[in-house]
Design a protein around this nucleic acid. Sequence first.
DNA 1: AATAAATTGTGTTACATTTACACAATTTAT
DNA 2: ATAAATTGTGTAAATGTAACACAATTTATT
Lengths: 233, 233
Amino acid sequence: MLQKYTHDTRILLAIDCIIFGFDGEELKLLLIKRNFDPEKGKWSLMGGFLNETEDLEEGAKRVLNELTGLENVYMEQLQAFGEITRDPVERTVSVCFFALINIHAHDSELSRSMNGYWFNFKDKPDLIFDHNKMVNMALSQLRYKAALHPLGFELLPEKFTIPQLQKLYEAIYDMHLDRRNFSRKIISTGLLIDTGEKNENSATKKAMLYQLDAEKYKNNFNDFHNFISDFKW
Amino acid sequence: MLQKYTHDTRILLAIDCIIFGFDGEELKLLLIKRNFDPEKGKWSLMGGFLNETEDLEEGAKRVLNELTGLENVYMEQLQAFGEITRDPVERTVSVCFFALINIHAHDSELSRSMNGYWFNFKDKPDLIFDHNKMVNMALSQLRYKAALHPLGFELLPEKFTIPQLQKLYEAIYDMHLDRRNFSRKIISTGLLIDTGEKNENSATKKAMLYQLDAEKYKNNFNDFHNFISDFKW
DNA sequence: AATAAATTGTGTTACATTTACACAATTTAT
DNA sequence: ATAAATTGTGTAAATGTAACACAATTTATT
């Protein structure tokens, strides 16, 4: 058997998880009010230490699951954050993930029991440590990626209308999009299947409900698109 | 003073560094033949453990500098890699960076003394641990980013011709580009300054030498472009 | 039962960008 | 002088994007 490394520093490894949601009008963020130290009483991302028995993705899924009860959620690693003094207690490097969830499908009693609260992204409170930086980078990354790949669907229910999808994109980019051009762009991806149903929650003309073509979505996820060609980066 | 965390796992933190270069014809990778354990005699990326006195970027810069002697190099974090058994010696999470360097400007004696050798990316040998995965992801990320931002310049000498820049892009994407359309696209960014000089190392018509408009480059780096619109992802 | 108000679906035209290709100019070797 | 290789600039067709018009659906109101 191999010797262990002689390297002997104590640098802890944490996971932090940014959770995006969408309520039909605004891009939202699930944050927790800490009832534990350090920084008890302040707002932060959901996080935890990485266990020896799990890899990074498993750790991130665990952390997400502890707050939302969800599994099989879209998640990607943002990056590692390692400023020396980012955690005042002791040296901790955090690997940060962001998740896109259907806000109506999570276990809201569980998240409330963990002191979890949804905020409009625009109205998010000041966060502990370097969590503000993480969240801002995550929004940049979400914008970057959602402009080029069909990512937004992850934030919607299984069946959705094109106007709903447009409102989501308008929330992500905080800008107005042309209804007709947006619709044409989305339809032309070929990723949507007309369910034949209509959105009954409407006081005016009921929009058609679509769902993702799961096969095409999986196979063509990495294709390049140009969903938001006029966003000013 | 705050208590330390009670969390007590030993997970080591390493840095690995992918170093891209360009020799005028091919995209290159600087790898080391390990004369130390583990996996002595095999090929790997340059790496090292993170020290308690440095943050992640500082650690990556140190690792790069130990092999190349370079400072002030373009570098970005790829992501953290944390599979449980990625390092057979003991549990180690590695934060992976990639660097773009001017291949002619580094300390080649130093890198040779560290057992560093340049490979054509296409001919890279099998690497230890998960370094193959890191390198392939880094190429994807380089392609992604260089298609949208003016990144390629980092791999060229200070003064360069447009045909040289084109060869670089052709090497990165492993495809042929139309000379005339490429030239127009690059010129239209407004990032190039005509030095008035010509490339004397040419047996036929000598191409004009350009250099970056440092101010515009810095300010407009995050602007979106479409340098490689016809690459099939 | 007709009408107004809000929203959704589809079409059309002008403008900008990308693609494909032609030709003239420069440099060295023959 | 001529040929071969490469570089710089131009132009027309095809494609994609932006801006805008109008008809259809649904509920509430008259």
